[in-house]
Simulated assay, not measured.
Amino acid sequence: MVTPGPLARHPRDHDLLLAALTAPSPSENTPWRVELPTPSKSIDQLRVAIWAEDPSCLVDHATARALAAVEQMLSRTGAMVRRSAGPCSSVTPRACSSSSCTTATAPAGDEAAAEELAAARALRNDDASPRAAFLRHRTQTHRTWLRTDEDRAKLRQTWQQFFTEHDDLLTPAAPTPAIPAGSRSLAVDGTERSFFDQTGWANLTSHVGLPSLVVPVTPTEEGLPIGVQIIGPAYTDRVLLALAEELTPLFGLSPQARRVEGRGSSRAAAPRIGPVPPRQAEQGASCLPVGVACGSYRSPPRAAASDAGRAHQSPHSKRAGQCNAQAPRVFRD
């Protein structure tokens, strides 16, 4: 799975990490505290948007089927689920690409920085290659950055408006299931795509300060995980963790997608979401981690709060049990 953040076996582990990141260091001797909101709605009260596809970052059939299965599962819980084109005009907005590279050249030495500036000035105006884009972003002027930051502020307002009508947004985590480690190519249903599409969906939120989680949904026949990304409004980090904790057991899937035969061809069946035996759920939670893509709150690592390991209670719990009484709750206390 793609996630530019920490990995953990269970949302509970991320809750512990979040407590550490949002607690002041004892050496600071400061009175500040961060109280992030906790869930106030049950699953059947949620308004969930599904951003399933985008022409700027195509997804393959296996990923689309996995997301559709999650959509069906959420509908069965009673949540209000609908498809959406997303709050952005593109999965890869310019503000994201530009702002993500603004400090990339800062640690470079004077000689290396001068070489990059010279290389950027030598670029042709029509050079739209990934290398040229990255080089321009790394060497942009302060004026260019200020204008980009204005674009980012406008984009943040667009997201805020979107979340007045929705509680959560689900997207693919990546265009395809996990690719081999070290690979520098990406093919979507046999068609070669830019390798940078691999992080297109994961880069939706960091530059606008929104929290998001990547949760494993199902493995492919080869055992590679397919994940979905859950995005929430600013500062709802704990709300997303609680939601992921309640949804994880509902993602109890058959170990691998079955193949069904058609006339003259074969295709992978859509993954089925339902209860799995508790031991199998434990094994799945251990080998398919939950990833935090980003968060609303940013701080250097801090000492964990003393009560960070306590069980996290969520109003989603009761409804989840009603929807699927056999769905196991995987806790590690």
Rank of each mutant, 00 (worst) to 15 (best):
R272S: 08
Q313M: 11
R193L: 02
T103N: 15
L36I: 06
S254K: 08
D189F: 14
L16P: 04
G227H: 00
V215T: 03
A8E: 12
A128D: 15
P301T: 02
E261K: 09
A320S: 13
F162I: 03
G284V: 10
A112G: 13
V59R: 10
E221L: 13
P130H: 12
A69Q: 03
S206C: 02
L213A: 02
P219Q: 00
N203V: 05
P31I: 12
V188W: 04
D149N: 13
G264M: 01
L240V: 12
A311L: 08
P277K: 06
A242W: 05
L67M: 00
F251S: 07
D15E: 12
A325K: 07
A304Y: 09
R184P: 06
T103Q: 11
T38G: 07
P172W: 00
E221N: 11
L213W: 06
L170Y: 05
A257H: 08
A270T: 07
A202C: 06
A19E: 13
Y235V: 14
G295D: 01
S89A: 15
R138I: 08
A173S: 03
P93F: 09
T176D: 00
E221D: 13
F163I: 01
T236C: 11
P255L: 01
A69T: 04
G190K: 12
D168V: 07
K41R: 08
S194G: 15
N203S: 01
G232D: 12
A118F: 08
S185D: 00
L36P: 13
L18S: 05
L7S: 15
S194T: 14
A281W: 05
D15T: 07
A49E: 14
E222Q: 14
P216E: 12
R184Y: 14
G284E: 13
S100M: 15
V239M: 11
L210T: 10
G109H: 04
V215G: 06
R156I: 12
P275R: 01
V276I: 14
G209C: 10
G291E: 06
Q229N: 09
L224G: 12
D197P: 03
G321H: 09
Q157E: 15
R9Q: 11
T22H: 08
H142T: 03
R47G: 06
R82D: 06
D110W: 14
S306N: 10
